[in-house]
Amino acid sequence: MLDITLGQYYPGNSFIHRLDPRTKILTTLLLIVAVFLANTAIGYGALCAMVLFIIAVSGLPFMLVLKSVKPLLFIIVLTLALHALMGQGEHVLWQWKFIKVTEEGLRLGVQMAMRLILLLMISSILTFTTSPIVLTDGIEALLRPFRVIGVPAHELAMMMTIALRFIPTLMEETDRIIKAQTARGADFDSGNLLVKAKNMLPILVPLFISAFRRADDLAIAMEARCYRGGEGRTRMHQLAYRAGDVMAFVFAFVMIGLLAFLRWGLL
């Protein structure tokens, strides 16, 4: 019994959840730009307030979003430490032999760390509030204009859809094969790397064969259901921008404007 939820979709029905996926992808990109514009304490303060505001609107538990920082925590701490310890600058706060902590270095380190944390949190809000399927639709729709220059938008989206559909099935299958070979005394834990790799064959070979058989079956089933690529296809769920989407875009541009103002002043 395996039940994996793909990605990290957190079901809900908030304003953010209901936004068009294209809006969410594009505003996420805009907000990322905003993060890169920030260079003052006030700017970062404004961004933090914004992230808290979005989380509040989305109804996601704050700790859940914060956890998305965890995988990169090491890099964040390292960034902070490197900038702080190796920093250049006049105002030395603390010094021990050749290691010195300067105010400028510390400031840069904190900025960098904040930047990473904000980026992770903003992009995780996107994946928390958008199911992978809807996300795929959004990506396909956004890539569609680029078909003229040869971007296979439909094919990419179809691949993602099928992957989403089959990953749970193949996980179950892997589990079953591992059990079957274990029951025949297979040992997947001992030995050096080479031995271990060789011991994986009794799992990998059946898994590949099964994946190919499934792919073959699926191709025939798709053909039987009149699939012939993206040409002339319609979609049941048409994406449509609503009033909320306009508000989201206005919000994102206001944030960019604000951060640009804080950085350059009135031009």
């Binding site: 079953r176 009794p202 059946p206």
Partner: peptide
């Protein structure tokens, strides 16, 4: 455990050699 054999459903799907 080695004295207990187990033939899974569709065991042919575990052939590999």
């Amino acid at each position: 455990r080695g004295r207990i054999g187990m033939v899974f459903q569709y065991p042919e799907h575990q052939l590999f050699a």
